[in-house]
């Protein structure tokens, strides 16, 4: 069973400080029970050595990746994990069915599904953290393809290198979306350096390339690292809940996201 944080589900559903009515709570409870039965969490990861030989270039697992954000995320790391996790296609089936019968339930499954894969990934990363700590390493926050200036195209490399289909049942569509939809891929850097303790220092400081530059999304990848948005902290891409970066909820609450005004989950 995957432990779900009720507060996170509320947050995805748009509740901030108020508590939902008992009716809504009851519906959430029913949905979560079905999800726990339908979930088939799987996770797979491998460790690779990391080299950063030129500015913005990170070499790992035979890949040479140009990304300012990833470079910063893995700076000072001698090895990193390529990580994939999913809670399985059963959750997508629940979503699909509920889309026909109840939008309310569909949105609960979406919200709780996002929380479920986050929570599962967190628990798996915790295991990695503990084993790395034994040899004196600390972990950087997860960094996913599609986040910041890290190209989504890397999903294909994750699929190939981790044999994701075989070990986790994660497949990609032609447009590089993961199926099951509640899945995560990420790099997780390991370093012996003493880190700042603030995950935000290693995450991309952009929420939305469009907002930052006004360019089209295609043009917008590769934003200068120092170009900050008017947000206070290292926001996640709120809408890409499936791929979002692990963050410290206290410091980077969804309410601080500069997209909060328009965010579907907050309405």
């Amino acid at each position: 069973m995957i432990e779900l944080r009720q507060k996170e589900i509320y947050r995805f559903l748009g509740y901030q400080k108020i508590t939902p009515s008992p009716e809504v709570d009851e519906r959430i409870k029913e949905c979560v029970e079905k999800m726990q039965k339908a979930a088939a969490p799987r996770c797979f990861y491998r460790s690779f050595s990391v080299k950063q030989t030129a500015p913005d270039i990170t070499e790992i697992a035979g890949l040479s990746i140009k990304s300012k954000n990833l470079y910063k995320n893995l700076e000072g790391c001698d090895h990193a994990y390529m990580f994939a996790a999913t809670v399985g296609i059963g959750i997508d089936m629940l979503i699909k069915r509920s889309e026909l019968t109840s939008l309310m339930e569909a949105s609960i499954y979406q919200a709780a599904g996002a929380e479920m894969v986050e929570s599962f990934a967190d628990s798996e990363v915790k295991k990695i953290r503990e084993s790395e700590a034994a040899s004196g390493y600390t972990l950087r926050p997860r960094f996913s393809p599609g986040y910041g200036d890290l190209p989504l195209a890397l999903q294909s490399d994750f699929a190939r290198i981790l044999d994701m289909q075989k070990w986790c049942g994660i497949t990609l569509t032609e447009t590089l979306l993961m199926v099951p939809s509640k899945s995560i891929t990420a790099f997780i850097g390991c370093t012996k350096k003493t880190d700042s303790g603030n995950d935000g220092d290693y995450l991309a400081k952009v929420i939305n390339p469009l907002e930052a530059t006004g360019l089209s999304a295609g043009e917008a990848s590769g934003i200068p690292d120092n170009q900050e948005c008017n947000s206070l902290g290292p926001d996640m891409i709120e809408t890409e809940v499936d791929n979002k970066i692990q963050h410290n909820p206290d410091k980077t609450s969804c309410t601080l996201c500069s997209k909060a005004k328009d965010c579907l989950y907050r309405k």
């Binding site: 559903l13 748009g14 509740y15 939902p20 009716e23 809504v24 519906r27 109840s102 939008l103 309310m104 949105s107 609960i108 579907l264 989950y265 309405k267």
Partner: peptide, 8 residues
């Protein structure tokens, strides 16, 4: 009102 109420 919040999204869940609208959806319900």
């Amino acid at each position: 009102l919040f999204l869940p109420q609208l959806l319900m």
